[in-house]
Design a protein around this nucleic acid. Structure first.
Lengths: 139, 139
DNA sequence: GCTTGACTTAGAGTGCGCTCTACCACCTAT
DNA sequence: ATAGGTGGTAGAGCGCACTCTAAGTCAAGC
């Protein structure tokens, strides 16, 4: 499979695929006679997995760490598992935070609904302070 | 309240607070005789609200839109509500996606658990393709 | 009255994750 | 044989959201 086809199948641009290879997220692809990358379908599984990590907010640095462990063979399975478990916790915290913030947003919208031409001028007057727990936002 | 105190109270750096004012997220602060910003406690409510929007992934452009509507007085309440409702939907979708992706991650970790020294060499072999629904990731 | 430190401005720099450009090589169809 | 499309590399540029620097002002404490 050439890079253009892979690009269509995985939804990343050829540019991005080459970039991923350059930084080490993808293994160096085999080449044809003319030096063009030639992919095996198996790369799609790996790209899909990377997509999951990305969609759950894992920074590229960390994906790289995982990719490196993977390259190093089966002896690194434990470490890889640890990395995923750690990430899992982070995602769970992010999920809880997002849920809380959504609830606050819903309450806020409800007050808008109630106060169409009521006493509210300052729309930012929160009724319930509601815990703004430690956000997962980068410091 | 001077900017340093506000900074401590809201958890943003003085730099960031000035930056927010510069781009229009915060109203131009009143100044003392020496030209220094002097804040009223009410700004904290607004900053907290901005924090919620940020924590739910709203880009600054959109917060700016909201801030501008707010500046324009109560006649913009409907528009502000619409903006929040739209954002709410986006957050809900993001939440569902995150939940799905977390589930996939959990399954993956489970297979790691099962396959300590089993047939698995390629850790990225997914069992169930599991819908990688349209992600909220910027295209 | 002099130092210290929090403040002011404009604007430069940073880190992330791409995204695009320039320019060249190759391959296929007409 | 040539034109167009696809690919290659190196490296510049971009959008976002800050973050920091430089150079100066001002008020308070010793």
């Amino acid at each position: 499979m050439k890079i253009g086809i892979l690009s269509q199948k995985c939804g990343l641009s050829s540019h991005t695929i080459r970039y991923y290879e350059k930084i080490g997220l993808l293994p160096r692809a085999g080449r044809d006679a003319g030096g063009r990358r030639n992919y095996d379908a198996s790369i799609l599984t790996w790209l899909a997995f990377l997509g999951r990590l990305k969609a759950t907010g894992m920074p590229i640095r960390e994906m790289l760490r995982y990719a490196d462990l993977r390259q190093s063979g089966p002896s690194t399975q434990g470490e890889r598992r640890d990395l995923l478990v750690k990430h899992q916790s982070a995602v769970r915290r992010a999920l809880v935070d997002l849920q809380n913030n959504l609830t606050v947003l819903e309450n806020k919208i409800a007050t808008y609904g109630n106060s169409l031409s009521t006493q509210m001028d300052e729309d930012d007057a929160q009724r319930k302070p509601a815990p703004l727990s430690k956000q997962r936002q980068p410091a």
